[in-house]
Amino acid sequence: MVTATTPKITAKDYRVEHANDWCPGCGDFGILNALQQAVAGLGLRPHQVAVFGGIGCSGKAMYYLPVYGVHTLHGRVLSFATGAKLANPELTVIAVGGDGDGLGIGAGHFVNTGRRNVDLTYILFNNEVYGLTKGQAAPTLAMGLQPKSLPEPNIQGQINPLLLAMAVGFTWIGRGYAYNVKHLVELIQKAIRHPGLAYLDVLQPCPTYNDLHTRDWYAGKDRGDGRPRLYLLEKEGYDPVIPADADAATIAAKTQQFIAKAQEWDDRIPLGVFLENRAVPHF
């Protein structure tokens, strides 16, 4: 539950002076910045927020916030976050972690958290590699791709986290971009406000190990016409809402629409709210 207690709180109140070992130019800085602005913008005081981190570069984000910050076990971030929310429903609970943490070792927790529509927000920093351990293929890396740490192209298939999130029951699904902080702030706030389980995928270029999907690649600088790959769903009139009283036909149509958007990649990559399902009861 979100309760504004003071209008005075600003992103500055969410800054923490603490040595940071993220690489220069890392997308994590954009996400942290957006997270600080988002919770401050909602008027939340630090003690009303608990941020749970997985293991990996991304999981350390909780050390740079003056909130209740819990660095958990590899792949188990959603279990800790769920427990905290059940123990104290007044808390705004946010889980942060990487693609390897959440979709590799943590895949079982990802799936089963989806079955319980607990009111928490999961922000997955998606850079397709295991950045902390020198750039091995993460579960989100497509088959055949070869970022610079791989001795040969990836021989395994990829998980599409948006499709997986929908399949297992996440009721709010969105995607942001680490270098579009303004848009990301709005997405994080929407995810927090959603009264159920929210999954926010954040495309987060890893400047050190992912030399394929770089900031320039997302910006389309490799293409002849220089057309950016990223676009905003809301600018194309996409309506993600499944109303509380939706009939089966509406739910089926929204699901089809979601699946089509969640599979767009390479040429055009959508950002924004993909799904807001109000038809599922929440904890």
Binding site: R45, P46, H47, Q48, A50, M62, Y63, P66, V67, Y68, G69, V70, H71, T72, L73, A84, A87, N88, E90, L91
Partner: peptide, 15 residues
């Protein structure tokens, strides 16, 4: 301090 308590924010870690 219990999570959510005013004045008690802190970091917990396995490290």
């Amino acid at each position: 301090a219990l999570l959510g308590q005013p004045g008690g924010t802190h970091w917990l870690t396995g490290g």
